[in-house]
Design a protein around this nucleic acid. Structure first.
Lengths: 149, 149
DNA sequence: AATTTTATTGAGAATGAATCTCAACTGCAT
DNA sequence: ATGCAGTTGAGATTCATTCTCAATAAAATT
């Protein structure tokens, strides 16, 4: 967490932006979290301790955090944007169960290698992967088999 | 195009739904198109010939076409959902230029193979891939290099 | 430390894509 | 042709996200 704050401060300075209280609170809340979050969840989480951070500020802060490379947009779920923090810089491939909503993360270095090759062919420079596959998770697949009979 | 209509009729029948004029017009418009479309574009395209098909009907028809397997949701761009028809069943990997909006499609069978392996590990059954990478296309990359000096 | 400059904030209004409502309408089976 | 669903267009509604603006706070300057 210390690390993130330092990076953030530097990023903001480089853009002539200010390290304000709300921005710190939001950063901390995100890194308290593990896994994915959307704006609503984040807002509720923050509200528990800080009654005076508005949704608008969260919405305004997210692009900064993305630009600075600390979080990334990962998916869309129930017509809400979902984000995740970037620990080192590992990207994920997401398996999203269309039945129960479960999200399974897998590392994907081999997949990325293939994609990088394809990108190179096109002269395309990738800054962000967005890889997902929808379908049924193990549990829901079993349920479906049962209910068919 | 004939083919699609037959498939569509069958799908609708199987669900006790009717093959109506607006549904036909929408189907035809989609298959006139090559590549991607969003609801607005489709609406404008249809409007040129048929003044009496509403946006609402397009929005209502799209889930049917997805369910029947004739189109799929492919991306999100400028906060609009984007769709594409499924010719055979080839999926694509999309490279989306964050500067000019260009979308480059590449086939991705090798990538899919890797992903299928990962899915198998998780006992996950994939019904739909959603693979994209954002970044800069060739042209925009060049421009950026120039403007930096 | 006080002042000036400039970015930032919260609150609520505005936007815009997608969904819903409902009375009028249309396929389609009989 | 008749009747029963399912369907439609138009506009209202929803809901995530963005914008506006006067009040405020952080950094820069003195």
């Amino acid at each position: 967490m210390k690390n993130e704050k330092v990076l953030y401060r530097e990023y903001l300075k480089s853009k002539n932006l200010k390290l304000t209280k709300p921005r710190c609170v939001i950063l901390a809340a995100i890194f308290e979290n593990h896994g994915h979050f959307n704006v609503d969840e984040l807002y509720e989480q923050i509200r528990e301790k800080h009654k005076n951070v508005s949704r608008a500020t969260i919405y305004r802060t997210i692009p900064l955090l993305i630009e600075s490379g600390m979080i990334r947009q990962s998916l869309r779920c129930e017509s809400k944007d979902i984000y995740e923090h970037t620990y080192g810089n590992e990207n994920h491939l997401h398996f999203i169960c269309t039945n129960c909503g479960k999200i399974i993360e897998t590392s994907f270095s081999k997949v990325a290698d293939q994609i990088d090759k394809l990108a190179k062919n096109e002269g395309f420079e990738i800054t962000e992967y967005s890889l997902a596959a929808r379908g049924l998770c193990k549990k829901c697949k079993k349920k479906e088999l049962k209910s068919e009979k």
